[in-house]
């Protein structure tokens, strides 16, 4: 069949959106198979597919759009001649602070994270055996810095830890940034908002996605997957589905974020 049965990819369907999305003109920052990121100054919003789901600054769509620029105004998204109404389903990314999180539940999550993390993620903070994956001279040096950063965080030396970890690692969002983002959320959940804010204020990244991630975490905003994990562990319920969803974010980003989150929780509890 020559003619496509589906409508063109530009005909995107908006499914839900985050309550913290601001009006204004955005331009394309980066595009991947499952997400398209748009920036406005230092602000990032992302069109993501259902598999990634709701999160701060996320608009959930059937497929990431190809627009070069977009404008958001009065509950509508404009791109060229196209206009889309923002959907009725709204996601509120903020979580409560001072959530009760039992230690045994955290340990269970760490076990699962260790089992399901990709080799070069920062989950080695829970098990030294995973350091084996860092096998080249360059990667060994990177591992050394990552370990040092984690140790400093454990000793509550946030300034030094952020200095080392921020911008450290491979990928679109360096592992160190994701780890710090997880740590900031953990502090927020534990009611230590000052520490969470400190991480954000000290992080000196020019990487817009990292900047937005760390900022959101420090303000207690997180994805629906993370929100579900926190809710379930506070109620002593299983949350494998959400864990899997978070671990599948990016290639190591989800695992790095969870490592930072769980590492900080287990140190503070």
């Amino acid at each position: 069949m020559l003619f496509a049965k589906n409508k063109p990819a530009q005909k995107i369907k908006l499914l839900s959106y985050s309550s913290d999305i601001k009006n204004g003109a955005y331009e394309l920052h980066s595009k991947f198979l499952k997400a398209a990121n748009y920036k406005k100054g230092r602000e990032i919003i992302s069109f993501v597919i259902r598999e990634i789901g709701d999160g701060p600054g996320n608009i959930v769509v059937n497929s990431p759009p190809d627009f070069d620029t977009i404008r958001i105004s009065k509950n509508k998204i404009y791109s060229g001649k196209e206009k889309f109404e923002l959907p009725k389903k709204k996601y509120f990314p903020k979580i409560e602070n001072k959530v009760f999180l039992p230690r045994y539940a955290i340990n269970r999550l760490i076990k699962y994270t260790l089992k399901s993390s990709p080799p070069l993620s920062m989950s080695f903070v829970f098990d030294e055996k995973r350091e084996i994956f860092f096998n080249s001279p360059f990667l060994k040096k990177m591992l050394f810095r990552m370990k040092k950063g984690a140790e400093l965080l454990k000793k509550d030396k946030i300034d030094s830890a952020v200095k080392i970890l921020c911008g450290l690692g491979v990928g679109l969002t360096p592992s160190g940034d994701d780890f710090l983002s997880g740590a900031a959320l953990a502090y927020y959940v534990l009611g230590k908002q000052k520490k969470a804010k400190k991480i954000f204020c000290l992080s000196h990244t020019d990487n817009l996605i990292s900047y937005n991630n760390i900022r959101n975490s420090s303000q207690g905003k997180c994805s629906s997957g993370v929100k579900d994990i926190i809710k379930k562990i506070s109620q002593n319920e299983y949350c494998r589905k959400s864990l899997k969803k978070v671990l599948n974010t990016g290639s190591t980003s989800g695992a790095d974020f969870l490592s930072g989150f769980l590492f900080t929780l287990s140190n503070c509890l």
């Binding site: 810095r145 911008g167 491979v170 160190g176 020019d206």
Partner: peptide, 8 residues
């Protein structure tokens, strides 16, 4: 093969 951040 890495992003050229200050720390990297």
């Amino acid at each position: 093969v890495i992003m050229a951040t200050k720390e990297n």
